[in-house]
């Protein structure tokens, strides 16, 4: 059952392409702690030669600036924070320097925030989505009853495509 209270309790912020997927998943939640799902903008694929100084500043620096601003804005609201990232650039890929810089930067930010915000009772976790992944069940677990026990976790919803590889 979808409840108005659940969707009001969960803010979905960020300009990432996965935002619509997360909004659909959140709409199906049946109860949640006050939470924020942060879906950062991730740059498109581009070769190293295409990463001009201006582009680096705007698309990598700008994306990370936006994440900082979103986190700071949500601090008063969120008891649970979930960063939702595409798995592919997290793992690395050709022509993905910018996307990998942003996603892995956010991954490390999440690790630091999970340590830092633990004393405030705020959990911080990461969902890494593979193609066509539906994060509904994992969001329900992280945001619902019992979710306060998980923090600093990185869950890859990739159907096992990353098995046998070193994660960052």
């Amino acid at each position: 059952m979808t409840t108005a209270a659940a969707t009001e309790a969960v803010h979905v912020v960020g300009a990432g392409a996965l935002r619509a997927v997360v909004e659909r998943a959140v709409a199906g939640l049946d109860g949640s702690a006050p939470a924020t799902c942060l879906v950062p903008y991730v740059p498109d694929r581009a070769s190293l030669a295409e990463w001009t100084d201006t582009r680096l500043s705007a698309e990598v620096g700008g994306a990370l600036d936006a994440v900082l601003a979103d986190v700071q804005h949500e601090l008063g609201h969120a008891e649970r924070i979930v960063f939702v990232l595409p798995a592919a650039p997290l793992m690395g890929g050709r022509d993905s320097m910018g996307a990998s810089a942003v996603t892995n930067g956010v991954l490390s930010m999440a690790r630091t925030l999970s340590i830092e915000l633990a004393r405030d009772g705020v959990t911080v976790n990461v969902l890494a989505l593979g193609s066509d992944a539906d994060p509904a069940a994992q969001l329900a677990a992280l945001l619902g009853p019992g979710g306060e026990q998980s923090t600093g976790q990185e869950i890859y919803l990739t159907g096992g495509s990353d098995l046998g590889r070193l994660r960052p």
């Binding site: 070769s47 900082l68 690395g92 892995n104 930067g105 930010m109 999440a110 690790r111 340590i115």
Partner: peptide
């Protein structure tokens, strides 16, 4: 090591994590 998370190091760990991620993709590209 702050790439793994360090209390109070939001910017530093973010930047160093980004550098680790870029390292992986650049290794594949180059």
């Amino acid at each position: 090591r702050a790439w793994l998370g360090t209390f109070g190091s939001t910017a530093y760990s973010t930047a160093k994590g980004g550098l680790v991620g870029a390292t992986r993709s650049l290794a594949l590209e180059l």
